[in-house]
Design a protein around this nucleic acid. Sequence first.
RNA 1: GGCGCUAUCGUCUAUCGGCUAGGACGAGAGAUUUUCAUUCUCUAAAGCGGGGUUCGAUUCCCCGUGGCGCUACCA
Length: 510
Amino acid sequence: MSERRVRVRFAPSPTGPLHIGGVRTALYNYLFARQHGGDFVFRIEDTDSSRFVPGAEEYILEAFAWLGITFDEGVSFGGEHGPYRQSERREIYKEYVKQLLDSGKAYIAFDTPQELEAKRAETPNFQYDARTRLQMRNSLTLSPEEVEALIASGQQYVVRFLIEPHQEVHVHDLIRGEVVISTDVLDDKVLYKSADELPTYHLANIVDDHLMEISHVIRGEEWLPSAPLHVLLYEAFGWEETMPSFAHLPLLLKPEGNGKLSKRDGDRLGFPVFPLEWHDPKTGEVSSGYREKGYLPEAVINFLALLGWNPGNDQELMTLQEMVQLFDLSRCSKAGARFDYKKMIWFNHEYILQKDDSEIAAQFQPILKEHGIDEPLERVEQVVTLMKGRINFVYELWEQASYFFLPPTTFDEKSLKKWWKDDAPTYVAELCDFIEKSPVFEGAALEPLVMDWIASKEWGVGKVMNAFRVTLVGAAVGPHIFALTDFLGKEETLRRARHALEVLKDVKEG
RNA sequence: GGCGCUAUCGUCUAUCGGCUAGGACGAGAGAUUUUCAUUCUCUAAAGCGGGGUUCGAUUCCCCGUGGCGCUACCA
């Protein structure tokens, strides 16, 4: 078994946008595949035609492209094991359903959904299994002729898996160890429905994993209860030898309160639960996405990787490549992890810090354009260099650094109260004159001159410089003042200061 | 209800029988600074309860309790 080529898959259902928990599952599969030099397969599980949502498949593909998670084969990637969309594999499944039917491991059942519903209503804890199947309308209770006649007459039916009672099923889980369950609690699961000629998840999943030579099934914990059924199916087909190893990942839980993370939590709590923004084609509802909210894909990946796994040391920031090296299923935790979006924000901050200023500038430039500001990349980059340490998102640069590009039109009241006192206009006016006459303007040279000058005047450095700052920025915020004047240039610096002097005079008198 | 999984600071987690229980996020305090922020330093903060096993249990086992999941002709 150690000789077997590692092949894993991510197999979403195209019923909507990709959930962030699904992203993490895909990520772990990706890391595992890459680490072992194996293959990563992208399969679409669209066996429930009624839940199909147009655009979902494209959305999922786009999300992974953005995140940098790549596949080796599957829908849109090609490969030798196709088709990779289950709805295109009907004929394959029929063959295997027949095999189970012929070997007596499955049977045909005619009970309608309504009949079953009624049965469940009248019988508490009703389960279609060894205790009840002989009271139902199926090929076990009907004669072959009756069954044939029913099918010939167009009766819809399903194929159920016949579960032998009183047996123990052992599931070997790479994260949880051995899980043992009695077949007495399992029901005869529907494997195939004649109505749409499609199998259900369980059958399609096992057949595809087998045919696609999947070696490891790494999926969410919500699948653990059906893992025994899957083991039984492998056995029914006689595929024990090549049955994949299982690993059931802990679930992602709500940041607060009870339950697993769901669609609704995101926008309610102020963070996205989807990688990309999603426009629901039916309801028109829009759900926010990490990309549109200004998160960097590297940050999302890094944060998600650590939700349920750790490298065994204190390292938290790591590239996808490092994760590939370090990943280890045996280092995955077993209990669900609450989604701590504040830490997610911290990761984004860290990744912004790591990124080249030019890259951040390239992202900030279009935001400036939206506000009617057309600046060369070089200028934008200067601002990024000065300001990126204090932001968590690129768009925050606009909120925190727009004054680099636009002179203040209003002046912050608190800042004025603190720094725009009686002597402030004198300080600024004289400072402007001093700067105007100064032989140098570049901050590194100008600063010591200004400091000496302030000292000779016996004014406080803080009083003068903060008053000056308010005239340039409009508030007592921002980077080192001489870094700002360097950016603005002599002309603009003096223009802003003197203009503010005028405006503030009026304000005071008014 | 039944079945299963699970349990260390508020949160994510380290510890694979020896602990003064470590790190990170968040929180608080301080330092630096001409503002704000950054940065730096420090502080508070945890082993669900009860039984075993053992020289010794956070670590292994059992019970309880809590949390989570599954319980469809959905995945």
